[in-house]
Design a protein around this nucleic acid. Structure first.
Length: 440
DNA sequence: TCTGGGGTCCTAGGACCC
DNA sequence: TCTGGGGTCCTAGGACCC
C-alpha cells in the first residue's frame, strides 16, 4: 500500500503559521516577479481565483474582499518542507519526497503493531500538524496513481476527515466514477481535451480503454501504464529519498527580468547570476555536471515577435564534468556570445545543468585534452574545488551572494537591471536570525 | 503597464560505431 | 557496391507534474 501525503495550500499554510492575521481571509502567494497566483487559501478558491491566474487580473477582487497577496518566500517554504518530511520519515519505513509539499509513503506493515491503517494515518496527520503547523490530506491505495486519486477526493470532501483509502474493487470503482478525468495524475490540458472528444469524462471511463487505445492516444507506454495503475496494477515503484531530500537529475535556474534587456552586458550579468545559483545547488547535491544549456527568451505575448521565442544552445563540456562556477561561467560566456543578437529584446534567461554524476565514480576521462588545460589538470581542479568550498561556506554563513563572480555585481547602491519584483515578501522566519518572530 | 520557475519522462530521427 | 542488426549519443520537441 502507498500513502500520498499532500500539504493543504502549502505556501499559504506556511505563511499562516507565522502570520495568524492571515487566518480566515482570502490569501494568495505569487510566483517570482509577483506574476501569477501559485497558492490559494480555501477562501481565495471560493472567490473563484484560479490557479496560475495573472496577479493583475485578480488584484482588485482580492482587495475588495480584504484579502492578502504575498510574494513567494522559498527559503521559508523549503525549510517548512524539510520539517514536514522529517516527521513523515519518523513514521513510515520508506518515504519518497515527490515535491516540496508531497511525499509517497511505504505503508507496508504499518498496521501490524498499532491499530488499523486509518488510525495510523490519522496519527501521522496529527503529528505533522502539531510539529509543523501544516495541515495535510492522505490518499491510501495499492498504486501511486490511485493514491493520488484518493488524495484528490480526500481534499475535495472534508467529511472524509483528510483520509481516503481505496483498497477494494468497489471503493476503487466508486472513487473513479466520481473523479473527472482531467483530475487524474498524468492527464493534462491536451489529453483532457482529446479524451473529451472521445466521450471519456471520468477516471472510470479512462480505466476501461484498451491497451492499444491508450498507447495510441496517450503518449505510448506512459498512457498504458497510467491505465494499469488506475486498475490497481502497480507500474511505478517507490523511489525512497535519501535523508529526506530529492536528488535531481538536472538543475536549472531561470528568471524573467524586471525589465526588458537588450545590452549584452546586462544579459551576461543575469546569466552569470543564474549559473552561479545553479552551480551552488549542484554542489549542495554533491554532483558535477557535464552538459550545460543556456537560453534567452523574447516576449511570447508580443505579437510583433515571431516564434521561436526561446533560443538555446547546449554544450557537452569538453573538459569533462565539473561543479566549478568559474569554469562553467567561462563556457557560458562563449555560449551566450553565440546566442545573443543585438537589437533583439529579451525578457528572460536561464541555464540548465544536465548529465549529473558523483565525482570520482565511473567517470569518463578525456583522452585528448592537454594535461595543462585548466579543465583537466588535477592540481587546478583541487584548487578550484577548495575555492568553491570556501565560497559556499562564506555564503552559508553571511548570506547568499556575499561572495560572487564579478559579472554579477552592480555598482554600489544600484539594483541589477535584471532584478525582478517581490513587493510583498514575508520574512525568513525560520532561516535568518534577524527575521525570527518575536513574541511578547 | 503587469501574464512563473523547476522538474520528469518519452519519442523520433540522424550520426556514428561494431 | 550492397547486405543487416544492434547499440549509443545527440538534439529537438511534446506532454506532463507541482
Amino acid at each position: 500500500m502507498y500513502g500520498l501525503v499532500d500539504c493543504n495550500n502549502f505556501y499559504v499554510s506556511c505563511e499562516r503559521v507565522f502570520q495568524p492575521r492571515l487566518d480566515n481571509r482570502p490569501v494568495v502567494v505569487l510566483s517570482n516577479n509577483d506574476g501569477n497566483v501559485v497558492s490559494r487559501s480555501a477562501e481565495a478558491k471560493q472567490l473563484g481565483i484560479p490557479m496560475g491566474a495573472p496577479f493583475f487580473e485578480v488584484r482588485e477582487l482580492l482587495r475588495h474582499h480584504q484579502g492578502h497577496a504575498l510574494s513567494s518566500n522559498y527559503a521559508l517554504y523549503g525549510d517548512m518542507s524539510r520539517r514536514v518530511m522529517a516527521r513523515l520519515a519518523a513514521h513510515a519505513p520508506a518515504v519518497e519526497v515527490y515535491s516540496i509539499d508531497e511525499a509517497f509513503l511505504d505503508l507496508h506493515g504499518l498496521t501490524t503493531y498499532c491499530g488499523t491503517l486509518d488510525t495510523r494515518v490519522q496519527a501521522i496527520r496529527r503529528d505533522v500538524l502539531a510539529c509543523t503547523g501544516i495541515p495535510t490530506c492522505v490518499g491510501v491505495a495499492p498504486t501511486k496513481t490511485l493514491a493520488k486519486v484518493a488524495n484528490r477526493l480526500a481534499k475535495k470532501h472534508p467529511e472524509l476527515q483528510g483520509v481516503l483509502r481505496l483498497d477494494t474493487a468497489s471503493r476503487r470503482e466508486r472513487a473513479l466514477r466520481a473523479l473527472p478525468v482531467a483530475d487524474v495524475w498524468g492527464i493534462g490540458y491536451q489529453y483532457a481535451g482529446k479524451l473529451a472528444t472521445h466521450g471519456i469524462r471520468t477516471a472510470w471511463e479512462l480505466s476501461q480503454v484498451s491497451e492499444a487505445w491508450a498507447r495510441k492516444h496517450l503518449g505510448g507506454v506512459v498512457g498504458w501504464r497510467l491505465v494499469q495503475e488506475l486498475l490497481g496494477q502497480p507500474c511505478q515503484d517507490l523511489n525512497p529519498s535519501e535523508d529526506g531530500t530529492l536528488a535531481r537529475k538536472s538543475i536549472s535556474c531561470s528568471r524573467s527580468f524586471g525589465q526588458r534587456l537588450t545590452a549584452f552586458d546586462d544579459l551576461w550579468g543575469a546569466m552569470a547570476t543564474y549559473l552561479s545559483r545553479a552551480a551552488e545547488k549542484l554542489r549542495a547535491q554533491g554532483d558535477q555536471a557535464h552538459i550545460l544549456t543556456v537560453y534567452l527568451s523574447q516576449d511570447r505575448y508580443d505579437t510583433r515577435v515571431p516564434p521561436p521565442y526561446t533560443r538555446s544552445t547546449t554544450l557537452t563540456l569538453p573538459g569533462g564534468p565539473t561543479s566549478d562556477t568559474l569554469q562553467l561561467l567561462a563556457y557560458a560566456r562563449r555560449m551566450l556570445e553565440r546566442l545573443y543578437e543585438p537589437g533583439r529584446v529579451y525578457v528572460k534567461a536561464g541555464v540548465v545543468l544536465d548529465g549529473l554524476e558523483r565525482p570520482g565514480r565511473g567517470q569518463q576521462l578525456s583522452l585528448f585534452a592537454p594535461a595543462s588545460s585548466t579543465a583537466t589538470n588535477p592540481l587546478s581542479d583541487v584548487r578550484a574545488q577548495q575555492l568553491m568550498r570556501s565560497l559556499d561556506a562564506l555564503n552559508r554563513q553571511f548570506g547568499r551572494g556575499t561572495v560572487r563572480p564579478a559579472a554579477t555585481v552592480t555598482a554600489a547602491g544600484q539594483s541589477a537591471p535584471w532584478q525582478g519584483k517581490a513587493q510583498h515578501k514575508s520574512q525568513a522566519f525560520t532561516t535568518r536570525l534577524e527575521d525570527l518572530l518575536v513574541v511578547g
